[in-house]
Each structure stands twice: as structure tokens, then as C-alpha cells.
Amino acid sequence: MLIFAISGKGGTGRSVTSTNIVYRHALQGNDVCYLDFDFGSPTAGAIFSVGAVARGTRRHGLHEYLRGDCAEPHQVDVWSESDREGLRTRPPEAGRLVLLPGSEGGGELSGGNEDMVRRCVQLFSRLNEEFDLCMVDVSAGRSYTAELVLNATARLPSIPFRWLVFHRWTRQHIIAADGLVRGDDGLLDAGARLGHDPEALRDRIRFVRTAVLEPDAAELVGLRDEQRAWLFACDQELRELAGRHKVGRTAMLGKIPLDPILQWREQIISDEDVLASKIANAETASAFDELAKKIVDDTAWEGL
């Protein structure tokens, strides 16, 4: 299964959320890999605390692979190469957790060619042999990268894939998420042009809300009544807006609560962060855990 992580705007927490989902999916006993296709800023290594590839790799990164400069991309075994002690011990029930970093200083892909699409098809096809789940971080907005992976998946009809569109719970983000999917040259448009059936493609797209602050959250207990009333009203307005833009509850796969730890540092939230040092909220970890199950749960992906 291939999962593509994308967002309408930058700063949604797409990378940190998708890395955490992959980490939880590995803990659930699956062999997983994470492909850093965010070519402008390949920093997934930093989130997994692999210092050596914090800003991409110097040798055989995904850029080089897609451009045909190396035969196989560099793979990093997170369980053995992470600098964080908590990530370096692979729990007995966990599957493999492998990162394919981008190239350091690689830059955005701009207008590729047929060879690049072919190499992308080959990459997905080989990784699908080896891993239960491949998460591909496609970066924000419309890009050649998004088009590349749409093109590749159109040529791999028997490999299942799904898209996660990340957005924050704000006006601009809701509108941007909808635009990215349904707008001109959005995913559905571009997908149809590249040979996908638009309806089938639409059923493979779900939204994930990030940094969500529920108006009745415990953190808001200290607010004045006026502030709380204002928040409720805002939330209500956003719900209506989301419904109109088809980004509402039915198209939503899950939401990640606002957690200070993710605002301060993009990192993997381990159970130790929740239970021992208590720097992260249990709700955040369980939201990741639940999403990690839902991405492969067919009942959560039944046609809308």
C-alpha cells in the first residue's frame, strides 16, 4: 500500500504527522518505509532524529535516484540509526522502519521526463514488494512531484494507494485543502488527465486535521466565558465552511489535537514521551495510533 501525504498550504504539520503515523504503524507490527519526496526541504531525517541525514543525504538520495544518477536510493534503518535512544530500541512486536531521505541541497523537481516517471514506477513497485506500507511525503501544494506520483500510480493499477490531505482547522487551510483536491489542476483534475478514474481517485482521498484545538478541551478551562463563546462560534463557522467545501466529517480520516511538543519541535512522539517524561499528551499519541490503523482499514475508506 502506498500512502501519499500532501497539504494545500505549508506549515500544516504534514511531515511530523505522517512520520508519526508511519512510526505507529511500525509499532503495530508492519514493515514500513517513509519516502521524503518533499524535495525543497528534505528534513524527515531530523524528525526521526537521524543526524546524519537531518537535511537529506549526501549519497544516493531520492533526487539522485529519480534523476537517474544512482541505481538504488539510500535506505536508513531508523531503529538502528536514530540518535534518539528511545527510537533505537526496536520493540519485539515492531516491524521494520526505514527512511528513504531526499538529497541534501537537492532542490524542487522541476518538469521531469518520461525516464523520471519510469524510475518512480520502478521505485514504488520494488518497495511494495518489501514493505506493508510506504508513506510518501509529497510536500505542499500543486507541484511537479504530485503530478509525478499521480502519473506513477496510474501505471501501477494493482498496487493500492491512498492520499491524505493535511490541513489546519482554519478558514484559509480548509479552502486551500479543498482547492488542492477539487480546484483547477488539483489532484482530481491532474489525476484524470494522467489516466485515473476521477471517482475512484476521489474515494482514495481523505482529509486529516492537524493542530486541532477543541473548544471544550481541558487546556481551555482558564479562558474567560467571552473567549470560550467566541471559540465555539468560530468552530461552528468552520464546520459549516468545511461542509460546504466537502472537507467535513465524512471526508475526514482523523484529527490530531494541538500538542505543545509538536509546536516547539517536530519529532516522533514515543510512548516514553507520554508515560515517562510526560512532555507529550496521551491524546496526541493515541490520535497517531488510531490514524495508523485507519489508513489501512477499508471500512474507513468506503465510498462517500
Partner: peptide
Amino acid sequence: SARFMDVVQSSPLLDRRAPFKVAR
């Protein structure tokens, strides 16, 4: 050699639903 494997693995005659995942 990897390409010669790819040719087989990507054959449209195969359903690609292997019973388990394993590296080459």
C-alpha cells in the same frame, strides 16, 4: 539483474497480491 526481476514482477499477468512482504 534487478531490472530482469522487475520485468517479471511487473507483468500484467500477475495480481501483485503476494502473501507476505519480503526484501529481495
